[in-house]
Simulated scan of single mutants.
Amino acid sequence: MSVLRPDYDSDPDRWRSWESPQDVHHLVAPELRGPVLDVACGEGRLASLLGPGVRWVGVDNSPAQLADNPHRPVTRADMRRLPFASDSFAEVTHLWCLYHLDDPASAIREAHRVLRPGGRYYACCAARDNDPEIVPEGHEPSTFDAEDAVSIVESVFDDVTARHWDQKFFPLSTREEVRAYCRHNYIPSERADRASLPLWLTKRGVLVRAIKH
């Protein structure tokens, strides 16, 4: 297993290069009532989708992403050492982030700590065989992939469910869009030049939900 080292501050053009028209945030946001702690909040996509009156707090360790985030309050912090009291939040989210850690369970334990009893936890990640049309050999295993995400969350939470996806959600319509997608996802750029258009990629991954008892 390898760690996907974050480059949000050293190479901000990579993560700014492309944004998915559909994402897990659209599934999670309608379920949240707050207060919600959005760990690795990035540019605030989850916050932008919340209903009126839902209290949101963002945490990220990247100054560049926090600077791009228009939502407040935000705190710069390590997800393994959250600067919040125990039992503080009704929901905690780890969306697209745990593969940046050598030990994802350390951050999940922190999420469990700051959740109230009965609070809900969310985490998501892609599968290693995601994007088979452009990465036929599969992605390199990381420390938090869909193949083992549920068992990792179950090492901390007792009540865990998973929603897997495996389908084509949207097309990449232009060559430039495919190049941007490759840049965003660490895929060799020359593959964009060989792709047929429009490119419908098969997206595979998992959304893990858990409850603190």
Rank of each mutant, 00 (worst) to 15 (best):
R55G: 04
A180I: 00
D7H: 13
E19Q: 11
S142Q: 13
P30M: 02
R163T: 12
D131Y: 15
G119F: 08
L49N: 12
D148M: 04
V74N: 03
L82N: 03
S196Q: 15
P141Q: 10
A111L: 08
G51W: 05
F144W: 09
Q65F: 02
D13T: 09
D87R: 11
A107T: 06
L201M: 10
G34A: 08
S155G: 11
P104N: 04
T161S: 15
T143D: 00
V114Y: 05
D87L: 05
C41I: 03
F157Y: 15
P70K: 03
V24N: 11
H184L: 06
V208A: 00
A85G: 15
S142N: 09
P52Q: 07
F169E: 12
E133Y: 09
A126C: 10
D38S: 11
V57S: 08
E110A: 12
V206Q: 09
F144N: 07
E133Q: 15
F169P: 05
Q65P: 06
V156W: 07
H25G: 09
Y121Q: 07
V114K: 04
G58Q: 01
R5V: 14
P198Y: 01
A29F: 03
P171K: 08
W56N: 05
L201D: 06
P12N: 06
S62P: 13
P132Y: 10
P70R: 02
A64K: 09
S142E: 15
M1G: 14
D60R: 01
A47I: 08
E190T: 00
R55P: 01
A107H: 05
L98S: 02
A210V: 01
V36A: 12
W96E: 09
L172V: 07
F84M: 07
P198F: 01
V3L: 00
D102T: 15
H184E: 00
D193Q: 10
C124W: 14
R179V: 02
N61W: 10
V59P: 14
C182E: 00
N61L: 09
E31K: 12
C182P: 00
E91R: 04
R45W: 02
V59R: 07
L98V: 10
E147N: 11
K203V: 01
K212R: 15
F144P: 03
A85W: 11
S48A: 15
P188A: 03
A127W: 11
K203R: 14
E43G: 14
V178R: 02
A210D: 04
D23A: 11
R109N: 03
S196N: 12
A192K: 06
D166V: 04
V57K: 02
S189I: 13
D60H: 02
D148Y: 09
V28G: 08
I187D: 00
P141N: 11
P70H: 04
S189H: 06
V92H: 03
M79N: 02
I152T: 15
I211N: 01
P104I: 02
E110C: 12
S62D: 13
